[in-house]
Computed example of a mutant assay.
Amino acid sequence: MAKTVLVVGAGIVGASVAWHLAKAGCAVTIVDAGEGGGLATRHSFAWINATWGNPEFYFHFRRRSMAGWRRLESEIPGVAVNWCGGLTWDIPAEDFDRFEAEHTRWGYGMRRVDVAEALRIEPGLRMPPEQALFVAEEGMVEPVEAARAMLAAAGGKAMMGTRVVSLVTRGGKVAGARIADGTVVEADETVIAAGTATQNLLETIGVPLRMITSPGLIMHSTVAPQRLLNGMVFAPQCNARQTREGRLIAGSDFAGADPKGEEERMARELLARVKALVRGAEDLDVGFITVGHRPTPADGFPAIGRPDGVEGLYVTVMHSGVTLAPIVGELVAREIAEGIRDPDLAPYDPGRAGLR
């Protein structure tokens, strides 16, 4: 008989977990308070990468997941990554050489470019950098679309618009979750992929997990009538990319900064920076603003696994959900369906020191 698994959360991580579990032969039920696609997911810059000062173990984990995105593209209709590359010059001069050397030593496809090559990569730059780093293997994805494609491919039972209020234990084991109308959705295993709601859900059964949920604002412009950026640019004034729809989206960094109650002012400032950065953006306006809360375990690294001493429960929570979704889904499904925990998950045990 197939193992029954309840996945709480239908963002990009929960969607990947659900699809991989279904592929492994589990009977999956997905519960989400929204309509599918997640909250953190829809507020993401959606950059698939393994860069930006990560320690080596985390770099390799992210790189492994980048390869996982190529696998998902071949297996799931509707999952499409734009492998456009990322052009970066938002690095202090004193760190530039070290940053390049470190990533090159680890095997990243990073190369230094001059003004002329930067303009070949991004002809729309008003003031191209004297030197920058380009990684051709980085990509961007429309995250809600990708999550919904995975949910559709997973099949199973989907309970959208359904809020989980607590976990349910029976005989010392997690037996499912109680939803807002009081019904208990039972399962052999319950996977929490609920983003910022993870900590509160775990607290309903006394399981500690310290998290930081800092806000980040992303400005989305009105739709440009033409292609202004080929890929992603990471400049000192802002990080920006153009969506498939044609909007330029920008943040003070790729995750966005805390607006501190001044969303409109910050969005206008970001728009001005984008116009100064990208030729052809002069007539654009602010289309809309998103402020997402990053679901980050307290030490900054993902929490992936079973909390100590709790049967029937599996936790998946991280900030870099878009990059990590493929590898997390694959390894969670293997552990639940086959009982095999991948060695690469060792640093991400949710019971590690610093999270309790």
Rank of each mutant, 00 (worst) to 15 (best):
V5Y: 07
V7D: 13
V8M: 07
G9S: 08
L21G: 01
L21R: 04
G25F: 06
V31C: 08
T41P: 08
N54W: 10
Y58K: 08
F61Q: 00
R62M: 08
R64P: 09
S65I: 04
S65H: 02
A67S: 09
G68Y: 04
E75D: 05
A80M: 11
V81K: 02
W89N: 15
D95R: 14
V115T: 12
E117K: 06
A118V: 06
P123T: 10
L125F: 11
P128V: 08
E130F: 11
A132E: 12
A132Y: 09
V135H: 14
E138T: 05
G139P: 02
V141Y: 00
A146W: 01
A153H: 07
K157C: 11
A158N: 09
M160C: 03
V164F: 01
V164P: 01
D181S: 13
G182E: 10
E189G: 04
I192E: 03
A194S: 15
T196Q: 15
A197S: 12
I212K: 05
T213Y: 01
P215G: 07
L217P: 01
I218Q: 03
M219T: 02
F234V: 13
F234I: 15
A235Y: 05
G246D: 12
G251H: 14
D258N: 13
E263F: 00
K275Y: 09
V286I: 07
T290V: 14
V291S: 04
D299C: 04
P302I: 06
T316R: 01
M318P: 00
A325N: 06
A325F: 11
L331P: 01
I336Y: 06
A337N: 01
E338F: 09
R341F: 00
P343A: 06
A346W: 00
P350C: 10
